[in-house]
Design a protein around this nucleic acid. Sequence first.
DNA 1: GCGTAATCTAATCAACC
DNA 2: GGTTGATTAGATTACGC
Length: 221
Amino acid sequence: MAPTSTSKISLPCGSRRRRLVLKPTQQGALHALFQQNPYPGIATRERLARELDIPESRIQVWFQNQRTRQLRQSRLGSAKSQGQGPTHGQEQPPSWTQEHFTKDGRRKRTSISPSQTSILLQAFEKNRFPSIATREHLASLTGLPESRIQVWFQNRRARHPGQSRSGPVKDMEAHPKPSPYVTVPVEPGLLARVPGVSSFDTHFFVPHPKGNTSSNMSALA
DNA sequence: GCGTAATCTAATCAACC
DNA sequence: GGTTGATTAGATTACGC
């Protein structure tokens, strides 16, 4: 896929969490548990977090990525075996579907107070894609875990697409598969007033013109 | 460069009012 | 039943080695 020239501008450092490098022992433990249950619930994830000294949110992400890897491999394997001779056993087809593993419960629903919501809303209005630094700042302001703030922003973006002016999302059908994000430079000063918006956020990381990128900017004014 | 952690969307489940 | 937090698959980005 040819990347369009405007599809991606690299963000200032600090926009993403620093990448975690797992130790071999941690990798081993995660793999072992994955064999038993690729869908660990919150209790298991928290126990692992304590035992391996890895944040629970990183364990959740590891399992997400690992399921993807596993599925991709098994599909690759079965695609090969269609053209080639069948490969007996060894390769576990994804027989581990979710139903078998949902016993271990979900995280308890986090209740977010009106005052916490108000802080998050203010930050959201200024930046729908907060950096890790901003999320952590918001976490300290609200007392909520950073991972819950990340989820809050995800849900919020999904349910409140843009201030999406009046019209329905319509254009861009000309480009069926737009690049998922573009970044838009923003004056740091505009953000300084907002609690929870750090100086890292000198770019707005916005979805590719579902609406209009420039109108997103005008929302700041 | 590769492998993979991090992030995203969209869809869905489920707790709480 | 509506709202909204939690989880999922899948696609993509970008960083550490």
